[in-house]
Simulated scan of single mutants.
Amino acid sequence: MYGINPYAPVNPAMAGVTQQRLANYQSQMPQMPTYQAQQFAPQPPMPLMMKGRTVASLDEVKAAQIDLDGSLTYFPCPADSCIYAKYIDMNGMPVIQNYKLSLEKEPVPKRYADAELVEALQQKVNSLERYVKGETVNANESVDNDANV
């Protein structure tokens, strides 16, 4: 038992027979193809797609079925010139947001004129009125320089 191989043939002549039997057994077994590890090229990430569809009114958005995962679903509405966004909040209630393009321009800040500028403009208007009436020859002539005053 100790130091003896139980699987080794006792008779050296039997060693050749054992090898032959093993070769016959292996030849009867179907040969399996060997597989090699394939290298996969990394593919670019898929572009993100927005979920949604075009609708005709807000009523259609209210009735639309959306995913319950909380992601936004967009509904452009050409009739109302807006985009509706609908999602399910943490309480399981639908939330609809309305995005409308604002065509209003920002108001221009008011600039106030000082008294000197107003007085100069009034003199210029008076000079132009006298020129139109034919009282003076030069329209650019200042009222202060007018001899008729």
Rank of each mutant, 00 (worst) to 15 (best):
Q20Y: 11
K86P: 02
E104F: 06
P33C: 05
P9E: 04
S27P: 00
K62D: 09
V118A: 09
L117Y: 13
I4T: 12
E135N: 08
P6H: 11
P107N: 12
K124D: 11
A120K: 15
Q36H: 08
M1C: 08
N5L: 08
E104W: 01
N140K: 11
Q19P: 00
A113R: 09
Y7L: 13
S71V: 07
N126M: 13
C77M: 08
Q39P: 02
D89V: 05
I66Y: 02
A85S: 14
D59S: 09
D144P: 00
N5S: 14
L103P: 00
D89R: 04
P30N: 07
N24I: 00
V143Y: 10
A15N: 06
P76S: 03
A63I: 01
L58Q: 01
A23Y: 03
A147F: 08
Q122F: 07
A115G: 01
Q123H: 12
G70R: 03
L121Y: 06
M32H: 12
P107Q: 14
V132Y: 13
N140A: 09
D69M: 06
I4Y: 12
T136L: 07
P107T: 11
P47Q: 11
L48N: 10
G92E: 06
T34H: 06
K124R: 13
M50I: 11
V10E: 05
P9Y: 11
V10F: 07
Y99V: 02
K100T: 15
G52T: 00
D59C: 03
R21M: 13
Q97R: 13
Y25A: 12
S102Y: 01
A23W: 02
E60K: 04
N140T: 08
S71D: 13
P78A: 09
Q38G: 05
A147Y: 04
Y84N: 04
A120Q: 15
Y74E: 10
S127F: 03
L58F: 02
A79F: 04
G134H: 04
Y25M: 10
L68H: 10
P76L: 01
D69Q: 06
Q65R: 12
D144V: 10
L48T: 14
V61L: 05
D80P: 01
S102K: 06
P30K: 03
Q39F: 11
Y99G: 02
P47G: 05
P78T: 10
A23N: 07
G52A: 01
A56K: 11
R111Q: 15
Q123I: 02
L58P: 01
Y112S: 11
S81Y: 09
T34Y: 03
D80S: 10
D69I: 06
K110P: 03
D67K: 08
D69R: 08
A139N: 08
Q39W: 09
E135R: 07
M90G: 12
N5I: 03
V137L: 14
T136H: 02
L48M: 15
S57M: 01
K124L: 12
T54L: 01
Y7H: 15
P12S: 08
N91Y: 11
Q38M: 13
A41R: 12
Q38L: 12
G92A: 04
T136Y: 02
T136D: 05
T54K: 00
G3N: 11
K100A: 15
M90Q: 15
Q38V: 14
G92D: 04
A113C: 03
R53V: 00
E135P: 05
P107K: 13
